[in-house]
């Protein structure tokens, strides 16, 4: 049953775009198409395709992959840490915190090593992006 979620998501997306196009955008005429025409066409196409996929999948369900919540959480944690701390502290501290967040779920990875990795990654970021490529990033805020 779970494997139906995929086609259902697609169905939802297709319907969503098609309905939003009708509700908020002008379809125009064939002579001068409005902004809503193309999204409506493609949204309808996706709805149809997703419906066919769903029917087929009901007959012969395609296997699905089991999720790994811990891995997802770790990656989310790492990216969120970076996005959250960059404006507050600058890119390099954010990089350190991001590495610590991502690696926190790995048990066989000892804490001292996590710090070593975190600071090496920050150093690498500075070396490549700021010193090497000269991209104007705030390395450490307030410095």
């Amino acid at each position: 049953m779970t494997s139906q979620i995929g086609p259902l998501l697609m169905l939802g997306a297709g319907l969503g775009f098609a309905i939003a196009a009708v509700a908020t955008l002008d379809p125009g005429s064939a002579r001068r198409m409005g902004p809503g025409a193309f999204p409506l066409l493609v949204g309808a196409a996706l709805t149809l395709l997703a419906a066919i996929t769903l029917v087929r999948n009901l007959r012969a369900p395609m296997d699905w992959h089991r999720p790994d919540p811990l891995a997802v959480l770790a990656v989310l944690g790492g990216a969120v840490a970076f996005a959250f701390f960059t404006p507050l502290l600058g890119v390099l501290p954010a990089a350190v915190l991001s590495v610590l967040a991502t690696s926190s779920v790995v048990r066989e990875f000892r804490w001292p090593w996590k710090f070593v990795l975190a600071f090496s990654v920050a150093a690498g970021v500075w070396l490549v992006f700021i010193a090497g490529l000269g991209i104007p990033l705030t390395a450490i805020r307030g410095l």
């Binding site: 990656v75 990216a79 960059t86 991001s98 590495v99 690696s103 990795l117 991209i135 104007p136």
Partner: peptide, 25 residues
Amino acid sequence: YFLYPTVVVLICVGVYSIDNSIFDI
């Protein structure tokens, strides 16, 4: 466990460096 935390940071910095936009992250 060395590689993937590094890749996460690289992706974030790479995306951020285009426009200095947190929204992009």
